[in-house]
């Protein structure tokens, strides 16, 4: 009995070691994607980028954009809802292939350039950070001074977190796993203001579940752009860039942008983010 158990344990141990080292065959990202027939985009759910329509289907600008790129490459696009602060871990472990969810080309909240962690494709959409407060407090919180020392919420690891840190100091900023949950905090009255993407605020704030909130123009942050984040050194970056170029040339990008009323924000000068 004891010998059998010892043997079984030994076998399990050896097997687990074998699995972890034998499977190290190096294949490039594009080869893997081509072979399996799909790439996985890491997303959080928010309008207008990736959200569920009334029938429960995933839709949105980034959703259609990713599907168009996938079609161009002859593969399928899959979407995986992730916890945004885990995005680099998801990417590096291969659990997702792309960070494609209104991903700002710029700095992490601690000031480190995101290019340290990912390779960016061409940028495709303009954005800026946007202040959101309760509708009845817009008058009161009308300047950068009024915001100082107030309680802020933002998505962890987002550009908005950096802006919030500057406005009110790091100690007053609480972060959440998605922009939507940051807004929830605001509705619940646990914070004075939130900093999220303008594109999201524009599509969601003031309507439906977010009717009690309002965009607040007390600050004017610099404009920024969205790009797709690929694993460092991945050959997928070039492939996607090619596809994006084609989609611009044949007018698909303009069509998708028009559908989501984003025509004015569409980046026209390809390669600006490189």
């Amino acid at each position: 009995m004891k010998r059998i158990i010892t043997l079984m344990l030994a076998v399990v141990f050896v097997l687990s070691m074998a699995v972890s080292f034998s499977a190290c065959g190096e294949k490039s990202d594009w080869e893997t994607v081509k072979e399996q027939g799909y790439f996985v985009c890491g997303i959080t759910v928010y309008a207008p980028m990736n959200y569920f329509d009334d029938d429960g289907n995933l839709t949105g600008f980034d959703t259609e954009f990713a599907e168009a790129v996938a079609k161009e490459l002859g593969v399928e696009a899959k979407f995986q809802v992730i916890s945004w602060p885990n995005k680099y871990m998801e990417l590096d472990s291969g659990a997702i292939d792309l960070i494609w969810n209104g991903f700002t080309y710029g700095l992490e909240s601690d000031g480190v350039a995101r290019t340290e962690y990912v390779d960016f494709t061409y940028s495709y959409l303009e954005n800026r950070q946007c202040l959101v407060t309760k509708a009845d407090r817009v008058e009161e919180l009308n300047s950068a001074d009024a915001l100082k020392g107030k309680k802020a919420v933002a998505e962890g690891g987002s550009s908005g977190e950096g802006v919030a840190n500057e406005l009110t100091g790091e100690d007053n900023v609480t972060t959440f796993t998605s922009q939507a949950s940051a807004l929830m905090e605001l509705i619940a009255g646990n914070a004075d203001f939130a900093v999220i993407d303008y594109q999201m605020a524009n599509a969601m704030v003031g309507k439906g579940d977010y009717a009690s909130l309002s965009i607040n123009n007390a600050i004017e942050p610099e404009s920024e752009v969205y790009a797709i984040g690929c694993r460092k050194g991945s050959d997928l970056t070039a492939k996607i860039n090619e596809a994006i170029k084609t989609l611009y040339e044949n007018g698909t990008m303009a069509t998708i942008a028009a559908k989501y009323k984003l025509t004015n924000d569409l980046v026209t000068d390809l390669g600006a983010a490189e």
């Binding site: 699995v19 972890s20 190290c24 190096e26 590096d92 472990s93 291969g94 659990a95």
Partner: peptide, 23 residues
């Protein structure tokens, strides 16, 4: 949970848990 799901891919480049049921 983090270790099981992320570490094989991050350290060894092995995707142990792929596909829809991977997570």
């Amino acid at each position: 949970l983090f270790v099981v799901f992320y570490v094989p891919g991050m350290l060894f480049g092995v995707r142990l848990f792929t596909g829809d049921d991977g997570r």
